[in-house]
């Protein structure tokens, strides 16, 4: 009973919040509803008994959306609405059509749900984290390693892009200041 109420509550809130993310032209509303929606999704994991995944969802997306906020803060005035430019009608049509197709597939999914079986059911007497670990390091070892490799590549490229003048402070070092000024003048 509690679970049904909680499920419908979380569903309604998540769908509502993500629609605000898509529809709103106010940056602050869009980002905040995105963050709140991401946090509420973890509620589904908790309802299904996957506590570990729920907490991971919470930690990962709280951090990720926070990073998104910092970019938004740099580029936009958060208190004003943004003028959106939707010029390409074909693209809108394509994306809209694909979303509609996706929606149809999702709603028709229960027809096939009887054929779906859990390949790796939860082991009794073992914690959530251990269960995830067992699957991750046996069946999904290669995707796991590939993901690790991609993160490593991203980290190295990040360091190379950002680390050219890492030893000198931009605010204290006059040489660095000059360099910025020259670049500005050339523009």
């Amino acid at each position: 009973m509690y679970e049904i109420v909680a499920f419908y509550l979380f569903s309604a809130l998540t769908i509502g919040l993500f629609s605000v993310t898509v529809m709103s032209s106010n940056l602050l509303y869009a980002m905040t509803s995105l963050a709140a929606g991401m946090v509420l999704i973890s509620g589904f994991f908790f309802l299904l008994g996957a506590d570990f995944l729920g907490a991971v969802q919470l930690i990962v997306y709280v951090g990720a959306v926070m990073a998104l906020y910092s970019f938004a803060m740099m580029f936009f005035d958060a208190t004003r609405d943004i003028k959106e430019k939707n010029t390409n009608d074909a693209l809108v049509f394509l994306l809209g059509g694909m979303s509609a197709l996706m929606l149809v597939l999702m709603f028709s999914a229960p027809i096939f749900s009887e054929n779906v079986q859990a390949l790796y059911p939860m082991t009794e007497g073992v914690g959530n984290a251990q269960d995830v670990g067992m699957v991750l390091f046996t069946k999904y070892l290669i995707p796991f390693e590939v993901a690790a490799l991609m993160l490593l590549v991203a980290m190295i490229s990040g360091i190379i892009l950002a680390g050219k003048k890492m030893d000198s402070s931009l605010t204290e070092d006059m040489d660095a200041d000059d360099e910025i000024m020259i670049v500005k003048d050339e523009k």
Binding site: T32, L58, I59, V62, Y69, M73, N128, A129
Partner: peptide, 23 residues
């Protein structure tokens, strides 16, 4: 069962307060 992760995640979410307040 995953108390520590949950508490750390929730405290991290708490920083949205100052962030949104400032913006």
């Amino acid at each position: 069962n995953i108390g520590i992760l949950f508490v750390l995640g929730m405290m991290a979410a708490g920083l949205y307060g100052p962030l949104l307040a400032g913006m």
